[in-house]
């Protein structure tokens, strides 16, 4: 038997019933090694109105670029206290907030290295399938050669960059715009 993948359908307005049990605002414990950071932001629709019923699912490598869970590269286990996954809901103002460690660099398909990043899967009523985007960190020296970031037109790369709220604060901010002049770059794999 061989069929194409089952069609995606929207999570609808009531997904919290089934998914909320796994909600979390942390991708690691406080004990995980690395530089601890927070990332905050808001999700906006095509009218610039905050989306109050979205969900982000986040996935990233630990401070040394190792994934927890299923990692086909066989690089070994991630550090203690590091989960690397979180299902983060937005609040009634479309705002999200989570804590993690600054990700390490992950190998690209070739021998180059990817810049530190967090993969985001975004779901909400109105999206018939989830969107993939990434959070990169403004000022990271590896951004200039990242194979994914450099595939994005220069004038849109900024939509993928989280900025420190104050220099050196380790509190980052990145908003997600579904449409409009600042429409976030979304990826297809």
């Amino acid at each position: 038997m061989s069929y194409p993948a089952t069609a995606s359908q929207t999570v609808g307005p009531y997904f919290k019933i089934g998914l909320q049990y796994l909600d979390s605002n942390a991708l690691c414990t406080e004990a995980a090694p690395g530089i601890h950071i927070t990332v905050s932001g808001q999700v906006f629709d095509g009218d610039g109105v905050p989306v109050p019923d979205a969900q982000l699912e986040l996935w990233q490598a630990d401070d040394l670029g190792r994934f927890a869970g299923h990692d086909p590269s066989g690089r070994g286990e991630a550090s203690d206290g590091f989960v690397g996954f979180a299902r983060v809901p937005v609040n009634e103002h479309g705002a999200f907030h989570f804590s993690t460690v600054y990700p390490g660099s992950v190998m690209a398909p070739d021998v180059t290295r990817q810049a530190p990043h967090i993969v985001v899967m975004l779901s909400m009523r109105g999206l018939l399938k989830h969107l993939y985007t990434r959070i990169y960190f403004a000022g990271d020296a590896l951004n200039a050669d990242d194979p994914i970031l450099t595939a994005v037109p220069v004038d849109r790369r900024g939509t993928l960059l989280a900025h420190e709220e104050e220099e050196g604060s380790e509190q980052y901010r990145m908003n997600i715009h579904l449409q409009g002049d600042d429409e976030t770059v979304f990826f297809e794999y």
């Binding site: 989960v83 190998m107 449409q179 990826f187």
Partner: peptide
Amino acid sequence: HAPYGSSVLRAPQRPLIVVPQTLSELSGPV
């Protein structure tokens, strides 16, 4: 999908950018 009203203000309007699959997408939570 215009008949589904909620998609109108929430569907991205620009084409998605096709990028290579990396270890970040081939891995995943267990």
